[in-house]
């Protein structure tokens, strides 16, 4: 029977691969959540504490700032987060492969 503490869990990762992966997932998720909630609280803050006209007067790339921030920037930010995640995963996979190859070569030498 697997002991409860030996079952995999996102918050109690086992082994270096899973630990590294969960760490980077937490970072990406933090960036994802902060951008969505942060941008909307910013828009809401501008609307409620300043003139709503301010939102339409501020333009960025030709668009009112809240349209640009939400409609243009956030999808771009998501793409960027995905790229960063993939780069990290590729490097991590390469390191793991490298480690496992060295391990196999060493054990092969011992066998000889």
């Amino acid at each position: 029977m697997h002991e409860p503490n030996k079952r995999v869990s996102f918050f109690r990762p086992r082994g270096s691969t899973m630990r590294g992966e969960t760490r980077v997932i937490k970072l990406v998720m933090a960036g994802w959540l902060a951008a969505i909630a942060g941008s909307q609280f910013f828009v809401w803050f501008l609307e409620t504490n300043h003139s709503a006209l301010l939102l339409n007067d501020y333009t960025f790339f030709n668009l009112p700032v809240h349209f640009w921030l939400t409609g243009q920037f956030l999808p771009l930010w998501f793409i960027l987060l995905c790229i960063l995640f993939n780069i990290w995963m590729d490097r991590h996979a390469a390191r793991s492969l490298d480690g496992s190859l060295r391990f196999r070569i060493r054990s092969g030498e011992r066998g000889d």
Binding site: V24, I25, V28, M29, W32, I36, H66, F67, T70, G71, L74, P75, F78, L81, C82, F85, N86, M89
Partner: peptide
């Protein structure tokens, strides 16, 4: 108007969840 931006963010941001938590 701006309410529709929730669809833009929702239908793109979901792919971040899908990639990091499930795809592989």
């Amino acid at each position: 108007g701006y309410y529709a931006m929730a669809f833009v963010v929702g239908w793109t941001g979901g792919y971040v969840l899908l990639l990091v938590l499930m795809a592989s």
